[in-house]
Amino acid sequence: MIEFVRNVRLWFVPEDVREEGATPDYRFSLANERTFLAWLRTALALIGGGFAVDQFLPDLRWGWRVGLALALLVAGVLCALRAVNHWVRCERAMRRGEDLPVSRFPALLSLVVAVVAVAMVVVVLVGWEG
């Protein structure tokens, strides 16, 4: 938890990242940045999906529609926050010459997306009448 607070502080205080270790090859930093951007796009896609569920499934029962849309929006928020946190952690690990941090997040996100997809299938098959 203290580690997380420290990372959050680093989001806003860029200079502190440079205090530790040595600057890595700029190509590694750029690769890390692209990974961050890929996660940010995933977050934006989830948020867009949330809007789309709300907008383009008007015949759905209110509870299902709002529930699915909110689930996608919340997943998008978590994905975005995790993107910047993981980026800071990777950047620090590279500066210190440590192994890159491992993460359970991709597995969790896959499970959430799978659950939402199954829910969509169920809703489309049985839930149209409302």
Binding site: V13, Y26, F36, A43, L44, A83, V88
Partner: peptide, 28 residues
Amino acid sequence: PEVLAPRYATAAVLCTVALAVCGAALVA
């Protein structure tokens, strides 16, 4: 190029999060 400034990364993420919060309010 220099490393991406965490300020920018955070700004981009905050824009994304704000969009989602707006969306949640609209959906609700």
